[in-house]
Design a protein around this nucleic acid. Structure first.
Length: 182
DNA sequence: GACCCGGAAGACCG
DNA sequence: GCGGTCTTCCGGGT
């Protein structure tokens, strides 16, 4: 059965009551949220925010809780809640202890991290992103979106499998306006 | 075979 | 209509 995109978009708008805030600067600031006991190991089928969204993401086999609100960002310029960019999504993912089995830093000071569950992370991105697509997000597509940032230097190539590196302020390279500050 | 890389074209969203 | 941000496809390399 074809998903009703209008209904899904309406649901996404309705659900945009996120806990993520930005400050007055260009950089995005995330409000960390300690996982509660209810979060830990809660079955995904019990924790999806919307039925329609979960149905559209049936390939996600994670047992980690999913709450769209914890992924939304308040844009500092428009003051409106929005879905994160892919780099913002990665930062949020790495900050969440209950997603440490998905991806974690191998060297947090250098911004190097490894994706442990590529398919699950791609599926999670599929649910978090604001774009509508008829195709399932694959890890290959997800990784291509990350590689897009190699060009402008927001991400740095590594030679390790499923491993990426954020460009960091401490690496001596200046940040840009449109990117997440480190 | 699985993964990584990057060009090209185009879709989606604000 | 436009620009930014992906998304999709694909050929080549490791």
């Amino acid at each position: 059965m074809e998903p009703d995109l209008t209904r899904i978009n309406a649901l996404i708008r309705y659900l945009k009551n996120g806990i993520v805030n930005t400050d007055l600067n260009d950089s995005v600031e995330y409000e960390s949220r300690e996982p509660s006991d209810d979060d830990e190991f809660q079955l995904a089928s019990d924790s999806y925010t919307t039925d329609s969204l979960s149905q559209d993401s049936s390939i996600c086999e994670s047992n980690a809780p999913f709450d769209l609100n914890e992924w939304l960002i308040i844009d500092s310029r428009s003051s409106r809640r929005r879905s994160p960019l892919i780099l913002e999504f990665l930062r949020l993912l790495l900050e969440k202890p209950h997603y440490s089995s998905y991806a974690s830093y191998t060297n947090s000071s250098l911004g190097i991290f490894q994706i442990h569950k590529p398919n699950e992370v791609a599926a999670l991105w599929d649910r978090v992103r604001s774009r509508q697509s008829t195709q399932v997000m694959s890890y290959d597509t997800f990784a291509r979106a990350i590689r897009y940032y190699y060009k402008d230097g927001a991400m740095i190539k590594t030679n390790s499998r499923h491993t990426f590196q954020f460009r960091t302020v401490t690496s001596g390279i200046e940040d840009t306006n449109n990117l997440v500050s480190w």
